[in-house]
Amino acid sequence: MSVTNHAALIKACANGRQSALKELMEAEGGRMLGVARRILRRQDLAEDAVQESFVLLWRRAGQFDAARGSAKGWIYTILRNRCLTMLRNSDREISVDLQEHEVASDDFVLEAAWSRLDAASDLRVCLEQLEPERRAAILSCYVLGYSHGELAGRMKAPLGSVKSWIRRGLKKLRECMG
């Protein structure tokens, strides 16, 4: 298996080499679609998000600075931001009142993510130290794109207290992971 040099490919994109973008798509496109699908739930929207992300990636390649962060992180940040914007602009506000089957399918996706998370990773070790509810809440933000409002709706708790409750969880994770 060849190792993809994401940073070099982004640089090549900045120099106008389209084959580099294609190579990035072959290396990361499938996973990116999976990430988008979890957040947007719908295949067509997820495909749009991936398509738009590659266009953005091409146009912003010149702004990428390897000294300021990982190339893969940069790529997935573009994708995640695109997905979240689409999500917030769509009508998933109704998710504040999640239907039963949606709760079930969200739980299933979260379960899968949790079980696949590398047992040796710092994130896994530190998430395990949180109470299960707080862990699930943080995971549903990252994995499913839940907003504070959706969390509050699902937990039937006031928005303000959910915000500070999550914040305390994030702080614990930071301290744990260093």
């Binding site: 679609l33 699908r37 979890r38 495909e47 990982s70 998370l117 590398d118 994130l123 990252y142």
Partner: peptide, 26 residues
């Protein structure tokens, strides 16, 4: 902070891209 959570991206399914994805982007 991004690196801390990036392991979660790896837990997503690797789905097959639609055949026309590259043409759409190009």
């Amino acid at each position: 902070a991004r690196t801390r959570y990036m392991a979660l991206d790896e837990t997503a399914d690797e789905l097959e891209l639609p055949a026309q994805m590259w043409e759409r982007v190009a």
